[in-house]
Amino acid sequence: MHELGIVFHVIKSVEQIAAENQVDAVSAVTLEIGEVSGIVHSYILDCWRWAADRSEVMKGSELKIEEIHAVTHCEACKRDYDTVAHGRTCPHCGSEKTYLLAGNEINIKEIEVPETA
């Protein structure tokens, strides 16, 4: 259900961008999805097929996913580390005063439009 909500928002945004650019068909949309954004790729692809095919502009369009690596910064020792491997506790100094630098994103990167002759 989480993924479906995200997909609805993506479709709404893409429809708006298509209209602004006088585009009447979209062949693919590329999303950048952070490693720790909580999005399950197979779910969002299933939701996409269902929802995109109900949109006039996006019928049959493909969803492409690019993953963004998750990196956490430690405020105590000022170093960065791999979030998925170490979670919230800094592997260098053991501090819990850490925050996510990257990996929580859900971005629309680009839209592919079939070239008309």
């Binding site: 995200i6 708006q16 961008i17 971005n107 629309i108 439009v113 070239e115």
Partner: peptide, 15 residues
């Protein structure tokens, strides 16, 4: 078939 790319770079949550 040829495609044209529209660069968006926008968070899903932007709207």
């Amino acid at each position: 078939s040829k495609v044209r790319i529209l660069e968006v770079k926008q968070s899903v949550f932007a709207n």
